[in-house]
Amino acid sequence: MSGTREAVQRYTIAVLSHLLLVLAWHFFVVLGDVPKIVMPSPWETAKALLVPNYRWIENIAVTAGEIFGGYILAVGSGVVLAMLFSWSRLLEMWLMPLLVSLNMIPKVALGPLIIVWFSYGIGPNILIAFSICFFPIVLTTARGLREVEPDLLDLVRSLHGSRWQIFLKIQLPGALPYIFSGMKVAAVLAVAGAIVGEFLGSDRGLGYLMLQVQVTLDTPAMFMAVILITLIGVVLYGLVLGLERLVLVRDARLG
């Protein structure tokens, strides 16, 4: 099938472009004679993984846990809140403007407060990740649930269909493309949220490790930490894409 061949070709090119970037990085450092403390080569960066003190596995687990925890919490509660909005116009009228205002708060600025309230650790970092990716989920889901053809509602109402049937058979599946586009935006934000939390106050995680090695000017380890954080984000994003592919018919996907 030409579709499969096209997909294979696309993935091959994607992998190649990443490899080319690493290669360019390598030659930039080697040919430019860039000091390791400013920018280590890919090889030196990889060697940072061998330092047992950095406890990579544990730190990866902590950061990934914060990201996924905050993310899943945000998706779950965001979708539920948007559903409540679609059921109660009054609730939406009261809460939605509030949410829009609250969304304008730079969530990073809440970090120090959250740490004052909940001390530092994994819990507060999950909370920061949650707070930063909650809004896009609510907003996109609410929007998706609103997008129903009035004639389609008439069709169901002419059959005396219930509110719940309309929701389950028409609104929710119709909103899925919107929910997924919100989930993609939120995936990027969740990573940023967890790292900000670790920067502000933490005793574990890749963000915390970055602050530690900054003191000793171990630039390769900082590079490695950034790469690993990015990889966690890529995995999360990939999972969302995979789920979308599984759930949505091709034509129903947004963008």
Partner: peptide, 17 residues
Amino acid sequence: PARDVGMVFQQPLLLKW
């Protein structure tokens, strides 16, 4: 009234999923 009406509109309004 609940069972004996079928409706067709200008748009097909099929559920695309």
